[in-house]
Design a protein around this nucleic acid. Structure first.
Length: 711
DNA sequence: AGCACGCCGACT
DNA sequence: GTCGGCGTGCTC
């Protein structure tokens, strides 16, 4: 439903309308104790009505509200500025009483309102800074629609909170464009130099870039930005974390100096971050490097959006409506006719789909170069017995132990250990094929001791047999490899052990022999040529996660770690403890993330999984879910899976928004639609949810488009 | 979400 | 006659 719905029909004509407005202002003057903000106000002579996006109140209705612009505010009340308005009061004894003062944004100035009642005046223009510019508003609108969310929620993500001191300072005029950069290491990709040239020329090329292993990708991303800047356009680079942002920032500064770009990350602090954001919004700076919140940065004349490592969960915003940076940047590339670069050492199924559908072109190096640049990969199955005494002490297969020992003679060795807290999933005890539902192919769970139930559709599976090998025994896959890493340190007593993990993340380690123990995503970059060897210990924990993406995610984390190890020509070797016949393990050995993603994509298409189909998750009390789905005009062919009970959140964990209230058991249904029906699905769920909120039928249900945790 | 209006039962 | 129960509907 569009925001125009629910508006009253055509009201008075223009003359009457103006008279009504004037009367309303006079009445306010006469009856109120004249607050300073509108004392003596006459409506502005031109376009006296401000269309306002109100920040509180009926966010779910997603409508604008019209207010009179007092003449005194005429100059400052431009579209995009923050305002305060009275909202939510009714009539009291025939007089207009002010409601609560709430803040909002002017989205437009118009000559007349189609509201038939008496308009209230703007209470205050908070700041003359036009922060919600028309372009940014259009982006927020598109993202809200895509994710069945409200415009106000998305605007809150897109526009940083105001800091008056930052606004007071003027931003310097933009520097003239730099000279185009040399292609540098982009030469290693056949299409690389052409891609940069197209960006400088002003074209909008789109590429999915499979980066060669090594530490050059920050420089390559920076060169793409520099090439865009050289053509007089802006660039936006989004990376998963502050560490990556700092590396790209250093690379871009080396290429174009300072003053042409800003770094938008959380660690700058709110005021400095807002100051930098303003520099972008004011057109003083045309390039942005940042973490996911930067995906909305209002870059002037956007020529390139780039995203690094879209498989990283940090790209999914945890705030409603939980937009993903990849989808937002796709929207921007289309809406603002900008170039698009999706890069990573690995490849997500979504990235593969962009190439398969022809929306983007592959940007890859040839196989020879990949083989030469990547380390040698050796696999060790779980069953391999440790023969050496020392290897047995470290609880390691002897080959893995040898790889570490050999590596330590030449430099640092990276050991990847799993993080705690991965839920085990059920798989065939003989061949390790995940146990899946015969009806909908969802993952099977074992809530009780014996019963098997599908986590998606709830169907019981009393007589499970493995689809691959016919085995009838299941095993839950659990690992505790952290201890192994500790024992590994004891096995090499002469070598320093450094750890990098959640609380203590190291950016770099020196190029000297050391054991560097890290959880996935926290791997330090080794100075010099890189790690001499790597040991990937978390195979079962990664592959055992009850998630559709388990294989893709395991491969991504392995490749990310292995990419920090020297190439095999320089003696780099990586040992991975995982069953060598598994598809992600084979893709690692061949260093073929694209092949893996393409096969996953084909399989998802066959099984009707996202991203080939589109899904939404609806969570809440069972009867509320049923009522919402019944009232929603779901697109034709929409399929409802479940609902099934939601796993009870860990009682030790503090309650997060989205968790069921204590004592209530919630369920989750999945709605699946055919490709191309995602927008219709989002619109239907949004409308149904809004209607129920208005009528106050039952408790609120949560709607999530593209749920990331598809068991 | 608030908050006011409105239409029915026990008080002064 | 009047206070107040909370059902229903609106917020520029």
């Amino acid at each position: 439903m569009s925001r125009e719905d629910g508006r009253q029909g055509a009201g008075a004509d223009a003359g009457e309308q103006l008279a009504l407005i004037r009367a309303s202002v006079r009445e306010t003057k006469a009856t109120r104790a004249k607050p300073r903000t509108w004392r003596g106000a006459e409506p502005a002579a031109e376009l006296p009505v401000a269309r306002v996006l109100v920040d509180k109140g009926l966010v779910h209705l997603d409508r604008y509200f019209d207010y009179v612009v007092p003449a005194a505010m005429d100059a400052e009340a431009r579209p995009g500025v923050r305002v305060r308005v009275r909202f939510g009061a009714g009539e009291k004894g025939g007089r207009r009483e002010g409601g609560k003062l709430v803040s909002g944004f002017i989205v437009d100035r118009v000559a007349e309102s189609d509201f038939r009642g008496v308009l209230a005046p703007l209470a205050q223009v908070l700041s003359p800074e036009p922060v919600l510019t028309p372009g940014l508003l259009a982006l927020c609108r598109a993202v809200a629609d895509r994710y069945a969310g409200s415009l106000a929620d998305v605007v809150q993500l897109a526009v940083p909170p105001r800091r008056a001191r930052a606004e007071a300072k003027e931003s310097p005029p933009p520097l003239p464009p730099n000279a185009p950069p040399e292609p540098g290491s982009w030469q290693r990709y056949a299409a690389g130099p052409g891609f940069l040239a197209a960006l400088t020329r002003g074209d909008a090329p789109r590429a999915v870039w499979t980066a060669l292993p090594g530490a050059t990708w920050p420089d390559e991303l920076a060169r793409a930005a520099a090439a865009t800047l050289a053509g007089g356009r802006g660039a936006l680079l989004v990376v998963p974390d502050g560490r990556a942002a700092a590396r790209v920032d250093a690379a871009l500064t080396a290429l174009v100096g300072s003053g042409r770009h800003v770094l938008l990350t959380a660690d700058a602090g709110p005021e400095e971050r807002y100051r930098r954001w303003l520099a972008v919004s004011r057109g003083s700076v045309r390039a942005v490097i940042g973490t996911r919140a930067a995906m909305f940065a209002p870059v002037d004349r956007l020529g390139l959006v780039a995203l690094w490592d879209d498989g990283d969960a940090a790209h999914s915003d945890p705030h409603a409506p939980q937009p993903h940076a990849r989808e937002v940047l796709i929207q921007r590339a289309v809406g603002e006719r900008a170039g698009f670069l999706l890069g990573g050492v690995s490849c997500t199924v979504e990235a593969a789909q962009l190439v398969e559908t022809g929306w983007a072109h592959p940007l890859t190096a040839d196989r020879e170069r990949v083989r030469a640049t990547a380390p040698r990969i050796r696999t060790v199955g779980e069953g391999d017995e440790a023969r050496d005494e020392a290897a047995r002490a470290a609880r390691l297969p002897s080959m893995a132990w040898q790889v570490v020992r050999e590596g330590l003679r030449h430099g640092p060795v990276l050991v990847q250990v799993p993080r705690r807290g991965y839920a085990p999933r059920l798989a065939c005890a003989r061949c390790r094929t995940p146990a899946r539902c015969r009806a909908c192919a969802g993952p099977l769970e074992s809530p009780g001791a014996d019963d098997l139930v599908c986590a998606w559709c709830g169907r019981a599976e009393p007589d499970w047999h493995c689809a691959e090998c016919g085995g009838a025994r299941l095993r839950a896959q659990v690992v505790g490899a952290r201890r192994t890493a500790e024992e590994l340190g004891r096995a090499f007593p002469a070598v320093p052990v450094r750890t990098s993990g959640r609380d203590h993340v190291l950016a770099t380690v020196p190029d000297t022999p050391a054991l560097v123990v890290s959880t996935p995503g926290a791997e330090p970059v080794a100075e010099g040529p890189g790690y001499a060897a790597g040991l990937l210990l978390d195979g079962w924990a990664l592959l055992g996660r009850p998630d559709l993406r388990a294989g893709e995610e395991a491969l991504r984390r392995w490749l990310t770690a292995a990419a920090l190890v020297r190439g095999q020509e320089a003696g780099g070797t990586v040992a991975v403890i995982a069953e060598p016949t598994l598809r992600p393990v084979q893709a690692l050995v061949r260093w073929d993330p694209v092949g893996h993603a393409v096969r996953e994509l084909a399989e998802r298409a066959e099984l009707g999984f996202p991203p080939v189909s589109r899904m939404a998750a609806v969570t809440g009390r069972p009867d509320d879910i049923a009522a919402l789905l019944a009232s929603a005009g779901l697109p034709p062919g929409a399929e409802v899976l479940g609902p099934v009970p939601l796993p009870v959140p860990d009682p030790g964990r503090p309650r997060r928004p989205g968790d069921p209230p204590p004592g209530e058991s919630w369920e989750r249904a999945l709605v699946r639609v055919r490709p191309g029906q995602g927008a219709a699905l989002a619109a239907a769920l949004k409308a149904a949810r809004a209607a129920r909120l208005v009528k106050r039928e039952g408790e609120a249900v949560r709607v999530r488009i593209d749920p990331p945790d598809l068991g």
